[in-house]
Design a protein around this nucleic acid. Structure first.
Length: 434
RNA sequence: GGAGAAGUGGCAGAGUGGUUGAAUGCACCGCACUCGAAAUGCGGCAUGGGUGCAAGCCCAUCGGGGGUUCGAAUCCCUCCUUCUCCGCCA
């Protein structure tokens, strides 16, 4: 959520920012004007209401004094007077709530402002490569995609998964199931022992409020799964960014405690409503997948540096696994709703002969903090400021499994186990057809 | 699932209809005393919003939301959370 005071003072800057996010000039302008109009209506109304409340409060105090002085005639006279204001105040409070709600609803669907150093662009074709790491060997003519490798090994089963749950689910068995578990453990251990993140076990079902806090609601409800819960519902987390970030919601964190760095290995659930027909084969795009997530909570001055640090932590996972990758900055048009700047890490898939996203690290500034009311007490103890939040995959476990399978495949159909994973695999060196 | 109790400022803890945004203690900040520290004394110390050049003034907030009343931390409804007992259960 953006700061309405800032919008009031910089309406043209908001229009420019929205245009950078591929909004049309007309839409950006009318949305901005609408926000400002709603804000003004709200404030004008509050002013009138507060004057009425002021008169009521003063009169009520006088009534108290009159009654203490046993001057019942004066008390009754004042009561009659305040009685008239009362209905105005009651209607006024209801109207204030209505105007406030309408204003917040409008503000809640405005995306975050891109940082100045984010390249302008329309879609993923305008993203800018920052670096390429690792050697991409010329694709062998026998290189295959992960689903062929997995099915031939008899360890990856889409048919039965579909019978259980439909499309976009996968059953893994034996050493392949273990390999995925090994990947998750390896990543978690790396971040907790070397990168300073605290491991957290979080709920996988969360309230709407939490989803609003991270920006998944109200705009992206169709991407989420919900389960009924009493009269209400709970959402399945699309990423542990949601519970990890909301850990500081409605709190004032002491400045000395920042930065907070959290990591978690959790399943993630996504309806993939808008991606029918995309990546239908294999386990690249699933309704359910494991991911190791990193979340940092920082003060206002440290978030940009923390973003570089977090990106490096994610890259380190791929370096240790010896997987070739490249890191790109998303252009303004390709960035997510809550992000100010996003680095995507794309891993090389020899079977697909292309780079595919395996991590996405974003700095959100105070955008999510406003939605969560997450603050910290300033160094000098003066004011309470909104924290800055960052999140990044460190990395997607399901996709890491795919990357390992494709990059470590052998011509005979076996998969070499990467060195760093062998301790997690009981020393196993190769996964092969039995 | 059934029965009961409770949610007040950073923390502890008063307050059951009228200058109570809230006693008191602790913590914290400033000053005094001291060579320095401790102890002691004095003063300060909630958040959000509106308005104003500013000093300030005003409004709201005692778990959230709604209501009763001239007036609500205090009464009513509802939701959330925590705790205790019973039942069930991984």
């Amino acid at each position: 959520m953006l700061d309405i005071k800032w919008i009031r003072e910089n309406p043209n800057a908001l229009v420019d920012a929205l245009k950078k996010r591929s909004w049309s000039e007309a839409e950006a302008r009318s949305t901005t004007d609408d926000l400002i109009a709603r804000d003004e209506a709200r404030r004008a109304h509050v002013l009138k209401l507060q004057h009425a409340q002021e008169r009521r409060n003063a009169a009520s105090k006088e009534i108290g004094k009159a009654m203490a002085a046993r001057d019942m005639a004066l008390a009754e006279k004042l009561k009659a007077e305040v009685g008239d204001i009362k209905s105005f105040i009651q209607d006024g409070e209801a109207e204030a709530r209505r105007l406030d709600r309408a204003f917040t609803d409008a503000l809640a669907v405005i995306p975050n402002l891109p940082l100045d150093n984010v390249p302008a662009g329309k879609d993923e074709n305008d993203n800018v490569e920052l670096r390429k790491v690792g050697k991409v060997s010329p694709p062998a003519n026998w290189a295959r995609e992960h689903f062929d490798i997995g099915e031939e090994l008899g360890l990856m089963d889409f048919e039965r998964a579909a019978r259980l749950s439909g499309s976009r689910f996968t059953v893994l068995r034996g050493q392949l199931a273990r390999l995925e578990r090994a990947l998750g453990q390896f990543m978690l251990d790396l971040h907790t022992t070397e990168h300073g993140y605290t491991e957290v076990q979080v709920p996988l079902l969360v309230r709407d409020d939490a989803l609003f806090g991270t920006g998944n609601l109200p705009k992206f409800e169709e991407d989420l799964f919900f389960v009924p819960h009493g009269e209400s519902r709970l959402g399945l987390i699309p990423t542990s960014e949601v519970p990890l970030t909301n850990l500081v919601r409605e709190e004032i964190t002491a400045h000395e405690k920042l930065p907070l760095r959290f990591t978690a290995l959790t399943p993630c659930f996504r309806s993939e409503a808008g991606s029918a027909g995309r990546d239908t084969r294999g386990m690249l795009r699933q309704h359910q997948f494991y991911k190791v997530e990193m979340v940092s909570i920082t003060d206002a001055d440290s978030s940009v540096a923390e973003h570089e640090r977090m990106t490096a932590c994610a890259e380190e996972v791929l370096k240790r696994l010896d997987l070739p990758f490249r890191t790109v900055v998303l252009c303004t048009g390709d960035m997510g709703f809550g992000a100010r700047r996003t680095h995507d890490i794309e891993v090389w898939l020899p079977g697909q002969k292309t780079y595919r996203e395996i991590s996405s690290c974003s700095v959100c500034g105070d955008f999510q903090a406003r939605r969560m009311n997450a603050r910290y007490r300033d160094k000098d103890g003066k004011g309470n400021l909104f924290v800055h939040t960052l999140n990044g995959s460190g990395v997607a476990v399901g996709r890491a499994l795919i990357a390992v399978m494709e990059n470590y495949q052998n011509e005979d159909g076996s998969i070499t186990v990467p060195d760093v994973l062998r301790p997690y695999m009981g020393g196993l060196e190769r996964i092969e057809v039995k």
